[in-house]
């Protein structure tokens, strides 16, 4: 089953490699992955579609959340969200087929971006399933060439972004172990997943 995940992550070297690495190492098949900058130049937004057993969905999100550079991992599969995919299709269309192809493109809200004697280049944006249909239809006209962007998604519910506040560094007294020093700074500790006492909360 396909799971749609939205990740907000720090734009640090290797961040993409960490995400794909964990997914592959845990045996989750990546269907598509898109990544681009956000308003904050230090952050990126990633939309990932993975093929996993529904029972593993929570595990996938947890594995993503474990990554130090991931600020937020949200499962959009069953939540209110918009998912969009973009496809560029080159269709060969002989003269007698041209009008039919154009008619069909119109039905799918596709735009003609290039037209030549050999055929058309079309662009369509829609949810991934709708695009699958579009591609099927175009195939019925002959050889086509397809490039898809992969899904991008946005949640329609506002999610609180919980961030860890800064942590003081140890003082370095030689008989005080770093573990102890850290324990001392962790005392403003946080509550578990369903807990409330966490951390700096930023409305996204």
């Amino acid at each position: 089953m396909l799971q749609v995940i939205s990740l907000l992550l720090e734009n640090k070297p290797g961040a993409l490699m960490r995400v794909t690495g964990v997914l592959t190492a845990r045996g989750y098949n990546i269907e598509s992955l898109t990544v681009a900058g956000t308003l904050d130049p230090e952050l990126s937004r990633m939309t990932i579609v993975v093929d996993v057993d529904p029972t593993l969905r929570a595990q996938v999100i947890k594995q993503m959340n474990k990554l130090v550079n991931v600020l937020q991992a949200v499962d959009l599969t069953d939540s209110r969200a918009v998912v969009r995919d973009l496809v560029l299709v080159r269709v060969r269309a002989s003269l007698d087929m041209r009008t039919a192809v154009l008619k069909e493109a119109e039905i799918f809200n596709a735009r003609v971006i290039d037209s030549s004697t050999e055929g058309f280049a079309l662009e369509a944006t829609d949810d991934p399933e709708k695009l699958n249909e579009f591609i099927q239809v175009m195939r019925s006209y002959g050889d086509i060439e397809v490039t898809r962007s992969g899904a991008v998604a946005v949640s329609l519910e506002s999610k609180k972004l919980r961030l860890q506040p800064p942590i003081p560094t140890p003082l370095g007294s030689r008989d005080r172990t770093s573990a102890e020093a850290l324990r001392a700074v962790k005392t403003g500790a946080q509550t578990g997943r369903d807990g409330e006492t966490a951390v700096e909360v930023i409305e996204e």
Partner: peptide, 21 residues
């Protein structure tokens, strides 16, 4: 100059456990 604090905004450690649980 010694670093006095570090900031790892995405690194969360849950220590307390949910009281109800």
């Amino acid at each position: 100059s010694p670093v006095t604090s570090i900031h790892l905004p995405g690194y969360k450690v849950f220590t307390e456990g949910h009281t109800g649980q």
